[in-house]
């Protein structure tokens, strides 16, 4: 489900007006202009129910991962954590290939996120602030590519990677996602609002070439959006499933691929399975707990307005 990514503004406003002052806010979260009634008790109750439904499966993963196999396989199921959380996590790391998978996923998601941020910022800058022939058509093309589900090309892609000797190798997972249309569009949207034209012009007057302008003028302005894009891309790359499942095997898996092994009946210990699932989710959960505000505002900033 890699397609379910950042959203797009359906009609692209190409700025022609020069009067409106460019927004220079470093924060992505816009103040709500819409209706802002105060929430009543019912709204709080409903939201609390929603929060419980969202969090409970993960809470229960932790519960199941902290008991043992016999306790998990009883009815009624356990509701409170047991004493074995850390020993089960350690076993999942060793026995269920989760250790290698965690390292692999960190490499894959880290490289993909870094390169996506770099290339997307470059392209986003060009689409937002540089004038060149075919700019609008190329931008439409970028958006159009979001409609092509990557899963459909999986057969030739597999043949290509086998031919290159990359099957079962991490680069086979990394190359196809080195940059994403979503990322390009996200940076384009951000930079066309956050980067004042005058700054770019001033750089030109000083005689700076484009790459120099990018390095010393664009990058500092783009930094908050780059951080958000890094995190969102990292989440997607970490969770990407279909292609890694096809091209990698159990000797060299990413986290989601290793998790299928857990489900496939080779591991009979249910609490160990849950420990694996928890382990594979922990890095992203930690990221959401620390940077939740930025991720939420990043997703909302990329949304279609109106």
């Amino acid at each position: 489900m890699t397609v379910n990514s950042l959203p797009v503004r359906t009609e692209i406003p190409v700025r022609t007006d020069t009067e409106t002052p460019p927004r220079r806010s470093r924060r992505l979260l816009r103040p709500g202009a819409g209706r802002q009634h105060h929430a009543g008790p019912l709204a709080y109750v409903l939201l609390a129910v929603m929060a419980i439904l969202s969090i409970f499966p993960l809470y229960w993963t932790m519960v199941a991962a902290s008991t043992d196999n016999t306790r998990v396989s009883q009815s009624p199921p356990p509701f409170l954590p047991g004493p074995n959380l850390f020993s089960n996590l350690a076993r999942a790391w060793d026995e269920a290939a989760m250790g290698k998978a965690m390292i692999n996923s960190t490499i894959v998601a880290g490289v993909i996120a870094l390169s996506t941020v770099m290339f997307a910022t470059l392209a986003g800058f060009a689409f937002a602030k540089l004038r060149f022939k075919g700019r609008n058509i190329l931008l439409m093309l970028v958006i159009g590519t979001m409609m092509v589900p990557p899963q459909l090309g999986v057969v030739p892609l597999f043949m290509m990677m086998s031919e290159l000797g990359l099957a079962q190798q991490l680069p086979a997972v990394i190359f196809p996602t080195l940059v994403s249309a979503v990322g390009v569009f996200f940076m384009r949207q951000y930079l066309s609002e956050a980067l004042p034209d005058e700054l770019v012009e001033a750089g030109r007057v000083d005689g700076a070439h484009s790459l120099r302008i990018f390095w010393s003028i664009v990058l500092p302005v783009a930094r908050p959006a780059m951080a958000v894009l890094f995190m969102i891309t990292f989440v997607h790359a970490w969770n990407d499933f279909f292609w890694p499942f096809v091209v990698l095997d159990m000797t060299n898996p990413t986290v989601p691929v290793a998790l299928t092994q857990l489900s496939a009946g080779y591991v009979r210990d249910q609490s160990l399975i849950m420990a694996g699932a928890l382990l594979g989710t922990l890095p992203l959960l930690a990221m959401f707990i620390v940077f939740g505000r930025q991720i939420v505002s990043g997703i909302m900033a990329g949304a279609v307005k109106g």
């Binding site: 969090i55 993960l58 969770n239 691929v257 939420v296």
Partner: peptide
């Protein structure tokens, strides 16, 4: 953030 927590969970973990 709470409503976004499931989005941070991979298909693998969620399905398990």
């Amino acid at each position: 953030v709470a409503s976004l927590v499931p989005y941070a969970t991979s298909v693998g973990a969620a399905a398990l």
